[in-house]
């Protein structure tokens, strides 16, 4: 379980999808980085990732790690967003039979997991079908 500080630190990405764009080559990093893996530049400008895209690949997790035991089975996928950025996340509100490579999805704010009954609740993005 992330400690509260560790969770808090990522809030700009998990709540607001904040990213950085390399001013050297234009590559977008999510989460932001200190050095561009494409051109080596260390200059970035703030941006946000696109909030919709298409499923590149997917799976349905039946054997989850501890914090996700109550949620299984759940679908996960790698999604290529409309700006080319790829991210990993759960695909919800989608029957497993409707999962498909190329399916359009968008980001939605959801509960991700929680630190037991008494600890911090962890929020963030999941994918839902674009209707």
């Amino acid at each position: 379980m992330p400690t509260p500080s560790r969770y808090w630190r990522e809030i700009p990405q998990r709540y607001r999808y904040e990213a950085s764009r390399c001013t050297g080559c234009g590559k977008i990093f999510f989460p932001p980085r200190l050095v561009c893996s494409a051109c080596g530049s260390r200059e970035f400008e703030p941006t946000k990732i696109a909030e919709a895209g298409k499923v590149m690949t997917y799976t349905v997790i039946h054997t989850p790690p501890q914090p996700f035991v109550d949620q299984a089975p759940y679908a996960m996928g790698i999604v290529e967003l409309d700006d080319g950025v790829r991210i990993t996340g759960q695909i919800v509100d989608c029957d497993f039979s409707e999962l498909a490579v190329g399916k359009r999805v968008r980001l939605e704010f959801r509960r991700i997991s929680q630190d037991g009954k008494a600890g911090v609740i962890f929020y963030g993005y999941k994918f839902v079908p674009e209707i």
């Binding site: 919800v92 509100d93 704010f109 959801r110 509960r111 991700i112 609740i121």
Partner: peptide, 16 residues
């Protein structure tokens, strides 16, 4: 609500 939906998540989406 699904297990991953609560007052906060619904408020965020309605507000957006």
């Amino acid at each position: 609500p699904a297990p991953d939906q609560d007052t906060i998540t619904m408020s965020v989406e309605a507000s957006r």
